[in-house]
Nucleic acid binder design. Structure first.
Lengths: 203, 203
DNA sequence: ATATATATACCTACTAATGGGTATCTTTTG
DNA sequence: CAAAAGATACCCATTAGTAGGTATATATAT
């Protein structure tokens, strides 16, 4: 049986180098390529046809890891995409599952769990990190419309701008903002943004 | 000559594992310990007396790496502290230099530069990353008062709260805010925060 | 089917923020 | 010394955000 070929995509070179060091001593893995951005990644994956692409979700321009995932799926490539993230983000995990990712791992995952997950995925499994009921802070659930509003708030748009983009009244936007503040226990937009970061939201 | 002992502090286990993999094959380095938080780090450094502590600046509660640096310096330990960061942040680099750090490296530094820097530091040098005149966006310089105001803005305080904390008029705070917005080319607080993140500011 | 959740939109009232202006005082720099 | 930069504080006007209310329609779930 041939070695499992890995392609690593991360904008932080030190993580790529670190993963190389991690996988170097292993008999059953080989890192066949790497990329620091999406364009290089698509080229590399097309040419090298790796078994697995290990992709950092958060890159300079938002969740580009998801875009790469979508590209792989749309092009019907055999490469299995495994996403790496700093945070446990239920929404992104759901998106990733829906788009056909084979795994979602946190960057503070230990190497043994990483190896286990990748071998499991190559054998046809999927491996998604699930928070183990750390319900000391009960999960905040936003409605779909609230999520749309949140994404525009964090971009810096005002309520009237958001109302235009969503084709609703600015009064409605204000209601959504109020509900979002109440759900998050915050009293102004900056506090809200800090809370969202704390929840691992913007990545 | 004995091997250079390294102690790694990072809240992301995968980076620790990655660095272990990186240094594993090297004859002249040995990783003698690791920690995911400040308390474990102080214990480990006290007991193991490593030559170098490689410390992630940004941890869950702000720039804790700087706190660890200060602790090492205040306790007059022989361990040399080298800071790792995601961003090139002139203010933090200056703080780090003032507090006696021996180095400041970006996480997207390649492994060869990392090795070179650490050997250089062990030999008595210092190694601070300097942006190589990427003056396509000219550096934004904030006055000391503006920096105080910025740090309170990003915490979520209103102008009147900031005025109380700084014992100045809220009208003066508004002036500082206006000047800060003008310097950064932003028109509201959320845009400002996004700009600051882009500049690598809050870490 | 009735209750719940979601989305919509309005109301009032108040506070905060933004974008201008002028002016004074101090410190630093040439 | 004169000029520039920094910090202070006020003026004006307008927009934006916060905090509460009611109300309606629709879809979802018990």
């Amino acid at each position: 049986m041939s070695r499992i070929s890995l392609f690593i995509v991360d904008d932080h070179q030190i993580i790529i180098d670190g993963l190389k060091g991690l996988f170097g001593p292993l008999e059953d893995f080989i890192i066949c390529g790497e990329a620091n951005d999406i364009e290089s990644a698509t080229n590399g994956i097309l040419n090298l046809k790796p078994d697995i692409a290990l992709v950092d979700i958060r890159m300079p321009n938002g969740t580009e890891g998801l875009k790469l995932l979508q590209w792989v799926v749309k092009n019907k490539l055999d490469t299995k995409v495994v996403l790496l993230s700093m945070h446990h983000d239920v929404r992104i995990i759901q998106d990733a599952k829906n788009w056909g990712a084979k795994g979602y791992l946190l960057k503070n995952t230990g190497k043994d769990e990483l190896f286990h997950a990748l071998r499991f995925i190559v054998d046809g499994g999927v491996y998604f990190y699930e928070a183990q009921e750390e319900k000391h802070q009960q999960e905040i659930v936003f409605t779909p419309k609230e999520l749309e509003v949140i994404r525009l708030i964090v971009e810096g748009y005002s309520s009237s701008e958001i109302s235009q983009k969503l084709s609703i009244s600015d009064e409605t936007v204000k209601v959504h903002r109020r509900n979002i503040r109440n759900k998050t226990g915050t009293t102004n937009t900056v506090e809200l943004i800090n809370k969202l970061v704390e929840l691992g939201f913007p990545y």
